[in-house]
């Protein structure tokens, strides 16, 4: 239906059928991201084994961009070395902040290209990525 602009079919699919969304299991490392200005509120949970993200999930509520971005993040990071995931979080942060151009950080987040053009949606895109980055960085420290 829409393959350009913000509401691309891939993004809407991640919103309607979010991957790895549901209750966080006991024992997972958790980090919350919330934006009281709009009500977006999610929690990311990971299981790391030997500095690798063995499992990653999220739950919570948010707009389509927030939920889709979190869903894409879990797909992009599952199985990745933790330090690579931190690098990816940072790359996504700078890619979004630049609003256009630059190298797509991961094929799985390309559908966020339309959303990053809108500065007002940056917090929506980055809520889950920032939470994951805080979690992994604190753990590595």
């Amino acid at each position: 239906m829409m393959d350009k602009g913000l509401y691309r079919e891939v993004l809407l699919d991640h919103f309607r059928n979010p991957r790895n969304k549901g209750s966080l299991e006991e024992g997972m490392q958790r980090e919350r991201g919330s934006n009281p200005r709009c009500g977006d509120d999610i929690e990311v949970g990971v299981v790391q084994v030997e500095s690798r993200i063995e499992q990653i999930r999220f739950h919570g509520r948010g707009c389509s961009v927030c939920i889709a971005s979190a869903s894409m993040m879990t797909e992009a990071c599952e199985g990745a070395p933790s330090d690579s995931a931190i690098s990816l979080c940072n790359h996504v942060e700078s890619w979004v902040g630049s609003r256009e151009g630059g190298t797509v950080p991961h094929p799985g987040v390309e559908a966020l290209d339309g959303a990053r053009a809108h500065a007002a949606r940056h917090t929506c895109i980055l809520l889950s990525w920032r939470a994951l980055c805080r979690l992994l960085t604190a753990d590595a420290a």
Partner: peptide, 20 residues
Amino acid sequence: HPHDVGQIAGELGVAVRAGH
């Protein structure tokens, strides 16, 4: 989410506010 309503409306030339 209201932000999604506001964003799509905006793309169609309809300026509304979404938020608290």
